[in-house]
Amino acid sequence: MAAPLRLGVLVDSEAKLTLLKTAVSQVGQRIDYCALVPGPDASETMSVLSLDELEQVSDLDAWLVDITHAEDDTRLSPGAAILSALLSAPSPVLLSDSSELGSGPAERMAWVARLKSRLQRLIGEVNLQSQKAANSVWVLAASTGGPSAVSDFLRALAPDLGVGFLYVQHINEGYSPALMNMISKAGHYPAGTAKQGSVIGANTVTIVDPVKRVEIQENSTLVLHDEPWGGCYQPSIDQLVANLARTHRQRSGLIVFSGMGNDGSASCRFIRQQRGQVWVQDPDSCVLDSMPAATLQTGCVDRIGTPADLAQSLEIFLRQSNFDEEPQAHESSATH
């Protein structure tokens, strides 16, 4: 389990501090420093932060700030100066607004839920400071026969292509560690399991666990939700691929390997609409060809091949791609 974030909290009342402490604790993070910004409700029981002290606590991972400013109140000018200094510092700053907090229990619960969601996304922002995100993200989708096919694909793939893979394999709970060990031994792309705030790093494989639903952010970080995947597939290829198409557009890709069922066939249309790539394993080389065959029937497939063929094709495609420019239009039919 990843170490919790070391957060600094900056507020102008102790009531706000109590609320923020509750939310931070519920998402598994910790507060290493908290201080009160001078204001009309200042209390002597909390330390009052100064600009000089701000420099001494600059090694925190991020700041959580909830300060109410009144432009006509000159007593809040120290708080404004401190906030300005924080926003120009390298550590991420999450601005909370407790003025949105209603008086009833339902409103309070909704506010805390929104804050917890923002804190979960903050983990990814912090992780991005130390890990480079992938230039493009491709989903490796599989079910029965998938681990062997995906291993063959990664074994044949050239190193350092800058791509990040999300491996969505239909498996039972508890099998992710064994799958990670198997995939890490195949080729040059180390595997890890999806965690809260994980960065989809360049030249890595992130295995999506079947228990918690995973959401992809536009900055290539992951948010894990407590609720399970919807539908009959765990994890759901269609849900994750639809999410990826929305966040990464032409920087997204899907490769459907051996498997039973039709998971992935619905969402491949979203990838195609956003000018991403949809590839499938040649059904003749699959242990079970239901998933590739269902995807082929959509008419959205750009390329078909054995796992080794697809690896060679991906190397060529990525080396020729310039994601800073508009992508070329898709060909009208699949190529072998």
Rank of each mutant, 00 (worst) to 15 (best):
L128T: 02
Q217W: 08
D302F: 02
D289E: 12
Q56D: 12
S84K: 15
Q56V: 05
V168T: 05
T193Q: 13
L254V: 04
I316D: 00
G39N: 10
I171G: 02
A178K: 12
L296F: 06
S267G: 11
C286G: 01
I207P: 04
V301L: 05
G197S: 05
D238T: 01
V199W: 04
R121W: 13
N219V: 03
N243P: 04
L64R: 04
A23H: 08
E173V: 07
G192Y: 11
E326M: 13
G39Q: 06
R269Q: 12
L83N: 10
L94C: 07
E14H: 14
H188G: 04
R251H: 06
P327C: 02
S43F: 11
Q196A: 02
L95E: 10
T206N: 04
V278L: 04
A293C: 13
E14M: 14
V208Y: 02
N243Y: 04
A113I: 10
E44N: 15
I216C: 06
S198W: 03
Q320F: 00
D160H: 09
A23V: 08
E215Y: 13
P177D: 07
L157M: 07
V112P: 10
L296R: 05
C34N: 12
I304T: 05
D209W: 11
E218A: 15
A294W: 09
I316A: 01
P147R: 06
